[in-house]
Amino acid sequence: MAELTLVVNGRSQAVDVAPDTPLLWVLRDALGYTGTKYGCGMSQCGACTVHVEGVAARSCVTPVGTVDGKKITTIEGLSADRSHPLQQAWIAEQVPQCGYCQSGMLMSASALLAKKPRPTDADIDDALGGHICRCGTYQRIRRAVHRAAEGGGK
């Protein structure tokens, strides 16, 4: 066990866990950020995606010891009030069905837009190709990313 400090959604929090514990389980079980989902445990589905220092990362394969002191953003921290253009676009395009994969999708999509405000379809494929949605909402996801990029969240 080790004392670590995680800065989650701007809040500094101390945790006492084995440093090889995946960040995912620390977020979910120790800190209560359940918006970040477990899907595969081996970086195959993207449901666990968060930002570490603004970069999309798979929390299921990120040992918590490697993010000590770093800034982590989860879906709960994407905006305070669902006002992020992607969240608005997700609602406008009626993207989610079961919704389980969408936290991860939104985190990867927001990292993409931060880097490339006007992504092409190929950019979207690159950013979200590692994610799985079993409800098959991909077509609406693509539309929603473009909508957000065009400032049409509403």
Partner: peptide, 13 residues
């Protein structure tokens, strides 16, 4: 849908 874009939707897990 709104609860499914901000992490507040509660699934079994």
């Amino acid at each position: 849908i709104p609860s499914k874009v901000d992490g507040s939707a509660r699934f079994g897990i």
